[in-house]
């Protein structure tokens, strides 16, 4: 949990993509077959977002949303278990890897913020996941069976995020402003979703176009504007897949892994 780029303060110059990838290779687990790289990237997305959503338990604005976010988290956790099991031992991968060995997008590790901020993260990610899994489901890869199953689940996540984006954006002045802030704050992490991943045979540029069209339609219906900043920054997006994460991720991992590391082999 050391030396990560800090999002809020002290922007650290990011190494050029090639050297980031090279240093990540060194930090990655031994298995680096393309299929494992893909399973690890998608499995880490699902695991990390699942943990973030689980943090809402006991804090959501209404009981129905507490249950909804926990159910979405559970779907993601189920997907993570299957994906990480394709790449190795699920518990070892989840609980015993260091920060630099995680391959999730920086988007999913971002703290929950307020409810609108969480919904913005859900909108960006669930739209991506639905489109990506939809394509993987019709492919021939090892990921196809999981993708075919999960795409049906994440379509509900996307619907949930879209309905809330509309309700908050087209709601009160306060909810509109909060939804705008959430969308703006997370926009710079969205570019990373369209970086090609080894072992995922998908046209990521076409994926970006579909994603942009889908997200734009929802944001505009919600009487909001698509953020106009860059989708990646010199020191932010574009590094999670290479094992470079933002500062809050280390603290999240410390909490997620603490029990397993303190009590090896603990079970319910």
């Amino acid at each position: 949990m050391t030396a990560t780029p800090t999002p809020a303060a002290a922007p650290t110059p990011t190494p050029a993509p090639t050297s980031a990838a090279a240093s990540a290779q060194a930090a990655a687990p031994a298995r680096a077959l393309p299929a494992n790289v893909a399973a690890l990237a998608l499995g880490d997305d699902a695991l990390v977002l699942s943990h973030r959503l689980g943090e809402w338990a006991g804090h959501a604005p209404v009981l129905e949303e507490e249950v909804a976010l926990a159910n979405i988290a559970l779907d993601l956790l189920g997907q993570a278990r299957v994906l990480l099991s394709l790449a190795g031992d699920e518990d070892e991968l989840a609980y015993l890897r260091e920060e630099r060995a995680f391959r999730n997008l920086q988007l999913v590790e971002q703290p929950n913020g307020d409810f609108a901020h969480t919904i913005a993260r859900q909108l960006y990610f669930s739209t991506y996941q639905t489109l990506l899994y939809g394509q993987l489901a019709s492919g021939e890869s090892e990921l196809a069976p999981l993708a075919a199953k999960a795409v049906k689940e994440v379509t509900y996540h996307q619907d949930h995020a879209e309905q809330w984006t509309l309700r908050l954006g087209d709601g009160t002045a306060e909810s509109h402003e909060r939804m705008r802030r959430g969308l703006d704050a997370l926009w710079r992490f969205t570019g990373e979703m369209f970086q090609p991943v080894d072992g995922i045979d998908v046209d990521f540029e076409a994926l970006r176009e579909s994603w942009t069209a889908s997200v734009t339609a929802v944001i505009e219906r919600a009487t909001l504007s698509v953020p106009d900043g860059p989708q990646s920054g010199a020191w932010t997006a574009g590094a999670g897949r290479q094992g470079l994460h933002t500062e809050p991720f280390g603290r999240m991992l410390a909490e997620m892994q603490h029990l397993h590391r303190s009590h090896p082999g603990a079970s319910w």
Partner: peptide
Amino acid sequence: LLSRFSSTACKAL
């Protein structure tokens, strides 16, 4: 519809 997710992920309220 009250909520898209109910007592379990497979149900809506």
